[in-house]
């Protein structure tokens, strides 16, 4: 039930904010432009969401593949390196990854997407390795004893048992993505961070509040929904 509150709030905000100019004017009478109108809030939200979804999908594909390969017998020797990359990579602040992408790709959505993807791989990768590692050896022995093939065992036994941690990684990846995409507006991506950054630069608190409210609601919605999926997956195992 709780999971519905944040998306509901997001929808209400999206419907109400475009008509709230007079309200913001009453609150902050000194502002000449009390409502962010450069891009519609709906467009900002969709573009933000699109960046996060796309980056998370790529991150899941890459992270899951690498994680699975590194835990197979032939790839085991890669495991320490993969772990080191995941651990060291996560000490890199998301802002830093974003900043590194700018000299490579210039301004706009591209560096933000690259940063989101690169950074998003790490939690998925780390959690995939951790999840697959934590599968009880007894379950694997039993599966081998019953005549499962290697890939069949992965699909039928290991991945379902590791689904909880993996899903936790996906969720973390998406949440960090929402935050990084917000900052991405500072390098020219059009996201819900745009009103915030413009508001900060132009001393327009109304813009800041509008952007922050929307991005907060979006983050909580995504967290809620993915959290629900994670709990489902954990219960299924």
């Amino acid at each position: 039930m709780k999971v519905i509150v944040a998306p509901l709030l997001l929808v209400v905000l999206l419907l109400a904010l475009p008509h709230s100019a007079s309200w913001f004017h009453a609150w902050m009478p000194t502002l000449s432009h009390p409502l962010y109108t450069r891009t519609s809030f709906l467009m900002l939200t969709l573009s933000h969401l699109w960046l996060v979804v796309l980056a998370t999908l790529v991150a899941v594909a890459v992270g899951l593949t690498l994680g699975v390969l590194a835990t197979r017998p032939n790839g085991r020797s890669l495991l320490p390196t993969v772990r080191a990359v995941a651990v060291i990579g996560q000490t890199f602040p998301p802002v830093a990854v974003l900043a590194i992408a700018v000299p490579l790709l210039g301004f706009g959505a591209a560096p933000t997407l690259l940063a989101l993807t690169l950074y998003g791989v790490l939690p998925v990768l780390g959690q995939t390795v951790a999840g697959l590692d934590s599968v009880a050896p007894a379950a694997l022995h039993a599966a081998d004893g019953m005549g499962y093939g290697r890939w069949r065992r992965l699909w039928d036994v290991e991945l379902p048992l590791a689904a909880g941690p993996i899903m936790a990684g996906v969720r973390l990846s998406a949440i960090v993505g929402v935050g990084t995409a917000t900052i991405g507006s500072a390098v020219g991506a059009t996201t819900l961070g745009s009103p915030i950054v413009e508001g900060l630069v132009g001393n327009n608190t109304a813009y800041v509040v509008q952007g922050a409210l929307l991005v907060g609601a979006l983050a909580l919605s995504i967290d809620g929904v993915l959290g629900l999926v994670e709990r489902r997956v954990r219960r299924l195992r």
Binding site: I175, V178, G179, T182, I183, G193, I196, V197, G199, L200, T205, V208, V209, G211, A212, V215, G216, A219, L220, D223
Partner: peptide
């Protein structure tokens, strides 16, 4: 945990007021 989810830029910005 709820606060942890809110993007940092948004939280920073909201505190200005």
């Amino acid at each position: 945990a709820f606060l942890q989810t809110v993007p940092s830029l948004a939280l920073f910005a909201l505190l200005i007021g």
